[in-house]
């Protein structure tokens, strides 16, 4: 019989591999960054996975919900995780992907009352909710009350529309918006993993570009 020995890279090996890919200076910036992700569904779970792989040092993960069978077609959870809080499930999954990442989880609903406290440690905030009113609430909260932070939000990624209509816009100095702007899940009737991942990738990439000092689109 084979003896299975599970080996993961040491922290030094991990950091060296990332520095070789991104450059040492940029990797230091990524490692020192804290990014909050509000909503851990199709957008948030994919944003988190991208940023963890890229070596972002700390993620603040916020969601009140549990993994449901209707999530598994597009969200970064496993069938065996059904019923778990998304915060706990994603923490487990990200820890396997990026073992040295610092993860802070909050199993709560973000509100106008608790938002400032939950998000105070973040340099950049990703809006990854599915409900339009929650998206607008968080956008107002961050841009009005936290003027030193960047917000990367999303609107319009439902359905089977062209991949090429998903894009990133810079609405204001610290406010970026990803998506096609119009494809509402109510009218489109569905969310498709690939198109949601495209939008999540736009958001994750915008975060990394902001960290790299590349602010223009």
């Amino acid at each position: 019989m084979w003896e299975v020995v599970e080996l993961i890279p040491t922290k030094e090996e991990w950091n060296k591999a990332l520095s070789e890919r991104h450059g040492e200076q940029l990797q230091k910036v990524f490692s020192a960054a804290a990014v909050a992700i509000c909503g851990l569904g199709g957008l948030g779970s994919n944003i988190a996975t991208s940023l963890a792989r890229a070596g972002v040092g700390k993620l603040i993960l916020i969601d009140f919900d549990r993994v449901d069978i209707t999530n598994l077609h597009r969200q970064q959870y496993k069938a065996e995780q059904m019923g778990m809080h998304k915060t706990d499930a994603l923490r487990d999954n990200l820890s396997e992907i990026a073992p040295y990442i610092d993860l802070e989880i909050h199993t709560v609903r973000v509100t106008e009352e608790n938002g400032a406290h939950l998000l105070q440690g973040a340099d950049i905030i990703c809006e990854a909710f599915d409900d339009a009113e929650s998206k607008a609430m968080l956008t107002g909260l961050v841009l009005e009350k936290m003027p030193d932070k960047f917000l990367v939000a999303a609107s319009g990624m439902a359905g089977f529309g062209s991949a090429n209509t998903i894009r990133t816009r810079r609405i204001a100095k610290r406010f970026y918006l990803c998506g096609d702007g119009v494809s509402d899940v109510q009218s489109e009737g569905s969310l498709v993993s690939s198109r949601v991942m495209l939008c999540a990738a736009h958001q994750a990439h915008t975060v990394l570009r902001i960290l790299a000092g590349k602010f223009e689109i």
Binding site: A132, A158, I171
Partner: peptide, 10 residues
């Protein structure tokens, strides 16, 4: 002026 009108889905 830019009015951003959010739609649902995420």
């Amino acid at each position: 002026i830019e009015v951003v009108s959010f739609v649902g889905g995420g």
